[in-house]
Amino acid sequence: MPKGKDTALMSWKEVPFGCYILEPGNSVKFKTGDWRSFRPVLDKEKCIKCGQCYIMCPEPAYEQDEEGYYIVNLTYCKGCGICASVCPKGAITMVIEEV
């Protein structure tokens, strides 16, 4: 088993001042999709493209496609289910992730 310090991301001497993030927008490097235990699945038959899922997604992991549907990016979706909860048409179902 590796020692604890072998798991460290960097030397303490390299830690940025106050642990600040000096590079704006770098959270995209942090792939939060593997936190997910439930995945949102969209039923395009029911979807009215209102964009509530896009607005309410805390990540934000929803993007609009060429047809105007809002599609979740599973690289970042944590599976919180807010999109399914706010969808006025019940078009989003949370489906368990099979590991």
Partner: peptide
């Protein structure tokens, strides 16, 4: 040294996962 300024955005106070927390505290203590 740094400040919150919309013209030069930075983030202050992010999470410190186990792979960085100890190093962050060591840096603070030194």
């Amino acid at each position: 040294r740094y400040k919150l300024d919309p013209r030069k955005p930075i983030s202050i106070g992010p999470v410190g996962i186990p792979e960085i927390y100890t190093e962050a505290k060591k840096a603070q203590d030194e």
